[in-house]
Computed example of a mutant assay.
Amino acid sequence: MSITSSLSVLLTNSSAETLTLVSSKVTGSSSTGSISLPQTVTRGTYGGLGVPASDTPYTVEWVYTPDGGATHLSFTTKLDGKDGITIIPSESGPLAGSWQLEEHLERLGDGWLVRYYYNVV
């Protein structure tokens, strides 16, 4: 059986607008059922976040909002095995066109380090 890699997370908000956590979840992991994310993300970078390796493929999803919940800025990250990773960013709501979500990933030992960016356009 193949071990699914760990996920280390860095969140970067390049805007002066505060982002508030709407929801977060981990599904399918044999090692954890949740990810601890900051309730608010102001301008800057937040680290020390992540999910340990798992015996099973898993998905990590979270949603932040810049406007009290009308606009959703979400990332869905699917991990499968040592090298399988898919990241799906999504913006929806009235301010969706004002935000651009990006990510940059790299190997970090036996896991992935992913930098998730929230940028105002």
Rank of each mutant, 00 (worst) to 15 (best):
S74P: 09
L105C: 05
S29V: 01
D83T: 11
N119Q: 13
T65I: 04
W112T: 01
S6G: 13
P66T: 03
I3F: 08
K82S: 11
K78I: 08
I87V: 15
S92V: 12
F75H: 05
R107N: 10
V114G: 00
S29A: 04
E102S: 13
P94I: 01
S54H: 02
V9T: 05
L19S: 02
N13V: 05
Y116A: 00
L10C: 07
Y117R: 02
G33M: 00
S5L: 00
S23M: 06
K78R: 01
V60N: 06
P38Y: 09
Q100T: 13
T27Q: 03
P89K: 01
R43H: 12
T4N: 11
L11M: 05
L79P: 00
G47V: 03
S23R: 06
S23L: 05
V51G: 05
T56A: 13
G47M: 07
G93V: 02
W62Y: 15
G111P: 14
T42K: 14
R107W: 14
T42G: 10
W99D: 12
G68K: 08
S29M: 01
D80K: 02
L21E: 07
G111Y: 14
T86D: 15
E102Q: 10
T65Q: 09
S14C: 06
T45Q: 10
S2N: 07
G97N: 15
G93F: 11
S24A: 12
T59H: 01
S24E: 13
I3G: 04
P52R: 06
K82W: 07
V9F: 13
T18M: 04
Y58D: 02
V41T: 05
I87W: 02
S34D: 13
R115Q: 14
Y117I: 05
E102M: 14
Q100C: 10
S36C: 08
L37G: 07
T4Q: 10
S36L: 13
F75S: 02
W62L: 06
G97I: 00
A53N: 12
S30I: 09
L105T: 12
Y116V: 00
T76L: 06
P52Q: 03
V63W: 05
S34G: 07
G50C: 05
P57D: 05
Y116Q: 07
Y46F: 15
T4H: 10
E103T: 03
S6I: 01
G68P: 12
L73T: 05
E61R: 07
V114Y: 01
E17Y: 11
V22P: 04
S30M: 06
P57Y: 01
